[in-house]
Simulated scan of single mutants.
Amino acid sequence: MRIRRLQTAVVATAAGALLVTVAPAAQAVSPVRDSAPTIAELLKDCGTATDYCKFTPTGTSTFFTAPHQVALVYNCSSVAQNKTVSWSDSTGGSNTVSTEISVTAGFDFLSKFEMGFKQTYGQTWTWTDTFTNQDTLTVPAGEVGWITRETKMHSASGTYELHYGSPHWGHYIWYVNNFAGTAPVPQEAGVHMYGSRKMTPAEKGICGSGSGTFPGVPKGSPYIPGIPITHGGPIVKHGR
């Protein structure tokens, strides 16, 4: 493939990344329009319409999400009780083009991102992850017990390099700079906390006339705003 390096053009897109074009075609008309492509158009071509496509990370970091509820139990009895709760928590990732291309869409550029991250940092990247666990908590009589989780996340940014076999948008080679992705660190417990609070009159109705065991309630049932929460302390804590 002959490449004539005549100029370098930088195009800013609405998504905030930069598309840098190099090596314009020596002759002939591009088989696609000559105006600049969108980031999504280029990434959809990665590994399918290109001869070469690679993602090279340039930086990474980790952080924890805000606490979110993963389990809720009611103690309808007149004495404190211990309860072992099984729960699962699913977390999805995002990236520069998430609003246009789902992270579960199966496009090759997503796997190129995973591969580049693994090769550079020796760590696994997955765009979605489900973590399952069991925790035991003590819930006082007539109270609601809950478990929260702070999910450990990581992010990475870098550059895609795409080579076409023929001129596309007037060029053989395109770069997508400043592409960024965020996803859960796979199978990391994160930080779990538990606590309890008094039931509201409406919640006491859940207990009915039963014997006072722990009836189940849907995952994600919200706290009642304005009611003090007594924290029981950490169940699991690591990664900080």
Rank of each mutant, 00 (worst) to 15 (best):
K204G: 09
M153N: 03
G212L: 12
Y164C: 09
Y194L: 04
T120F: 01
G142M: 06
H171S: 12
S155V: 08
F179Y: 15
D135W: 02
M199I: 00
P184T: 07
W127E: 02
P215N: 05
Y172H: 13
F109G: 01
E143F: 03
S211D: 12
G181I: 05
F179G: 05
K118G: 05
W169Q: 09
Q134P: 04
W146L: 13
M153S: 04
F179A: 14
G205F: 01
G181P: 04
V176I: 14
T96P: 00
K204H: 05
V85I: 14
A202S: 12
C207S: 02
V103P: 08
A141K: 06
G216N: 13
K118W: 09
E161F: 07
F117T: 10
G210H: 05
W125A: 09
A180I: 07
T136C: 07
S102V: 11
W174T: 08
H192A: 07
T132C: 05
Y194F: 10
Q187R: 06
V144R: 14
V191F: 09
F131G: 01
L110E: 10
S98E: 11
G165M: 08
G92E: 14
G216P: 07
I147E: 01
N95S: 15
E100A: 15
P167A: 15
S94K: 14
G220Q: 05
K198S: 12
E114P: 03
T159P: 01
V85F: 00
A183S: 13
W127L: 07
G106P: 08
T200E: 06
Q187W: 02
R197K: 08
H192W: 07
M115C: 09
G205Q: 07
T130N: 04
K219G: 11
W146M: 08
E150R: 13
P218I: 05
P184M: 12
H163V: 15
S90C: 14
V191S: 02
T200H: 10
Q119T: 12
S196M: 02
V85K: 00
G208T: 01
E161W: 04
T136M: 10
Y172P: 03
G195R: 00
T213M: 10
P167V: 13
D135S: 08
A183F: 11
H168Y: 13
Y164E: 06
E161A: 10
A141L: 09
P186S: 07
E143W: 00
A105P: 04
E114C: 11
V85S: 00
F214G: 03
I101H: 05
W87V: 08
I147A: 00
S166N: 10
S211H: 10
T99H: 15
W125G: 04
A141C: 09
